[in-house]
Amino acid sequence: MNETKKQQHHKKGWGELIKSAVIYIVLAIVVWGITSILSPSGGAEVTKTVAKTFKDVLSIIFAIFILIGLIQVWLTPEQISKVLGKEAGWKGLALSATLPMILGGSLFVIFPLLKTLREKGARTSSVVAFLFAWSAKAPLLPLEIKFLGWHFAVLRIVLIPILAIVGGLISEWLIELPHRQETE
């Protein structure tokens, strides 16, 4: 069975979730604490940066969490794999190489979203293509044209879906290599 299937059956319990949460929080505090001891002013700056970054991403990440929850409950794995799975074939790959171009957000919010799609049956090539296509960042297009010119922006937007498909296929082949060798 492939990796995604296994993950689906092995859902983390609340205890495990809380344990990993505590580990990361402790790690963050330790790193921050050491910095503050070595350089109190640097530590204060770090605190400011952390607070500011959290404030910047909080509302968007909150929205993404809700969307993930809704996807989890309303979309069946069958529906997802029909659009982004193996049976979707070229159409699924083409869709994941173009549609995400209009999305915003940062990697912090895209990773959890993609993980959900993957667990729901999206094939690996679609997940990788989705991520690459997302880098187009169409909502930021006005900024890109302003600072780098429209030649730059157009060339980038044209190349991204093509490379997203190529990258998706290469990655899937490499990631699923061990499974294929097992089944052979």
Partner: peptide, 25 residues
């Protein structure tokens, strides 16, 4: 159910983010 799942994801992701943001800082 959806909101409960959202809470699970938040619990999984937010602490990692805190750690990441400290590194970023």
């Amino acid at each position: 159910k959806a909101l409960l799942h959202a809470l699970r994801v938040a619990l999984l992701v937010l602490p990692v983010l805190l750690f990441v943001f400290v590194l970023m800082g």
